[in-house]
């Protein structure tokens, strides 16, 4: 696909934002409740939601890919790459589908995405550990995804409102 300078710039900014968010969420000691290394809350999904609506799926996928790869490079941990890729793309797939449903607001889309994100991560954990023990945490993570999904939905809604008058949002 061909990207204009403006698109490229926006993609860059959004990737940076997503990276910053995933670094920030590393500070949350999720491991106290769920002792699986590599699992994240998925706050970087805010960017995915936003990109999906404003730029469309293709560029949203690009941003996600860049975020996952760069995030793994920054963390110096290739195991985390599997987690973020599987979580990220599960969320992306579900959100692309949900965003096509007219009845749903950003909240519903985000919550569905967050749930898919955590399912993807558990799948990654099952794959990388080679046993099914991580499934034990799936119910907790699904519950948590209601909160994180609502939070990302809220943030995205605020973003859309704030940018409603800029030419970014002009449909």
């Amino acid at each position: 696909m061909k990207l204009t300078t403006k698109q490229l710039t926006l993609c860059g900014i959004l990737t940076t934002l997503a990276l910053a968010l995933s670094v920030a969420e590393n500070q949350i000691p999720l491991s106290l409740a769920i002792p699986i290394p590599g699992i994240k809350l998925g706050l970087a999904n805010i960017v995915t939601v936003f990109a999906l609506y404003v730029l469309g799926p293709a560029q949203a996928v690009l941003i996600l890919l860049a975020r996952c790869l760069l995030g793994a490079v920054f963390a110096g941990n290739m195991n985390a790459l599997l987690f973020s890729l599987m979580g990220g793309f599960a969320a992306m797939g579900v959100m692309i589908l949900l965003s096509r449903l007219r009845g749903l607001s950003v909240y519903g889309v985000s919550i569905g995405g967050a749930a898919a994100h955590n399912c993807g991560q558990i799948a990654a954990a099952v794959l990388s550990l080679g046993n099914t023990a991580p499934l034990y945490y799936l119910p907790i993570l699904l519950g948590v995804s209601l909160l994180t999904g609502a939070l990302t939905g809220l943030m995205a809604a605020c973003l859309f409102r704030a940018l409603a008058h800029t030419d970014l949002m002009k449909g």
């Binding site: 293709a58 560029q59 949203a60 749903l104 809604a157």
Partner: peptide, 23 residues
């Protein structure tokens, strides 16, 4: 922006921002 939406799959409409029953 209208022109660059054609690049990806176009967005439905401006997203709904208030949670509803479907959510």
């Amino acid at each position: 922006l209208r022109s660059w939406r054609k690049v990806g799959t176009p967005m439905n409409t401006s997203p709904k921002l208030r949670p509803g029953l479907w959510d």
